[in-house]
Design a protein around this nucleic acid. Structure first.
Lengths: 222, 222
DNA sequence: ACCTGAACACCGTTCAAGT
DNA sequence: ACCTGAACACCGTTCAAGT
């Protein structure tokens, strides 16, 4: 029966703070990540966090580097297979952490970030055997596509083809309410409503389609 | 000598409010756009703005639709030329309004947005003669690329190849300070430093290169 | 019809103080 | 060594009031 029966808190440390911040942003979006709410998660006053991260900016840097650490390096099976796997892993990571899309390449790069970019560039230079300029073009095209796809995908508040089809119809109705004759005004948008309102839309297939377009293009120019 | 010599303010209206908000965001980033600072621009108390926009969210909707209104529709010269011109115009718009990149496809779509998407889809269906599914694939690949490129381009705080080369060297030195032997650890990143530290890096050319990769791929699959 | 003023419930972060 | 409490300079937005 020691005197420490009282609910003792596990002391905070940097890693727990960063992980909790990621969980908060994953759940409620980056807007819901505030130092005050993060402190609440640990039943602690906001200022307690500042012993472990210098400020919110540094916290964001650390969060982004954790996401980079979750991404697969390109490796094995030839450059095309390897780059494809990297792209798929990146999209999945950005889907798990939608708040990260705009931050990945903005924050001060951490070690996982540097390792990832170095490994990817290495794959293009060595495995694919691309000359330097061509490797840069390939890298730029792929990452633009991946980040852009993630950016667009993130805006859509549904994950399955079925949810998609419902949302498309709802949006069409919302437009119809504000416009006198929407089908005549925007015929090609309403074609989309008709086509996808029933069957829905498969994001995985869409991502793969554009990815193969780019990978084939790179191979073709090699 | 009427009694109205006193500095009379032009009364606010919605358009002036939206334009001033865009100017503020263009200059200082979206973070510097606050209702309070916007009100200051008009020498008015913050609450005066709320007669013209319902709230900040609706202001953002309106700002995004102004940007959509600045973008060229695809038109003339065959689908490939038209789609290329649209892409270039979009990148330029997103470069003028970097804060818009993450908002373009998130906010409630306004009339300029609907017109733009309808015209682009129309170009792919009619001028390019693509079947529906292929038009969707083409649209998705192009917009993902354009938004992603704009997202990545925006993170780099310099605009000319020369500024780029200086920034690359500065970043390399920052990394070198924190890592014991960075050239061995990240050889492919340091290849980039060497290659671009001198000559610099041309963003316009890079954008065009990836764009042509995708346009050629679409043509090839048609 | 349009603008004001005070107030409320939030932010990140400082500083000095507690244990 | 780690956490607290009070305070400061900010937010968006409400409500009731002024002209």
């Amino acid at each position: 029966m020691s005197q420490s029966e009282a609910p003792r808190r596990i002391p905070l440390d940097r890693e727990r703070v960063v992980r909790a911040a990621i969980a908060l942003a994953d759940e409620g979006g980056i807007g819901s990540l505030t130092m005050r709410k993060l402190a609440e998660k640990f039943d602690v006053v906001p200022m307690a966090l500042y012993k472990h991260v210098a400020n919110k900016d540094e916290l964001l840097d650390a969060m982004v580097d954790v996401v980079f650490g979750e991404l697969e390096f390109p490796s094995g099976g030839g450059w095309k297979t390897a780059m494809r796997a990297r792209a798929v892993s990146m999209r999945e990571g950005l889907l798990r952490h939608p708040w990260a899309v705009e931050l990945m390449e903005v924050r001060k790069p951490g070690p996982a970030n540097l390792r990832h970019h170095n490994a990817t560039m290495g794959c293009l230079r060595e495995e694919a055997g691309l000359p330097f300029r061509m490797a840069i073009h390939a890298y730029s095209a792929m990452d633009s596509y991946i980040y852009g796809f993630a950016l667009l995908e993130r805006t859509l508040p549904f994950e399955t083809p079925d949810e998609y089809s419902k949302a498309v119809k709802a949006r069409a109705e919302a437009i119809a309410e504000e416009h006198p004759s929407p089908v005549d005004e925007y015929p090609y948008l309403f074609e989309i409503v008709e086509e996808f309102g029933g069957s829905g839309y498969d994001y995985n297939e869409e991502f793969g389609s554009g990815l193969d377009l780019i990978l084939d293009g790179i191979e073709h120019r090699r």
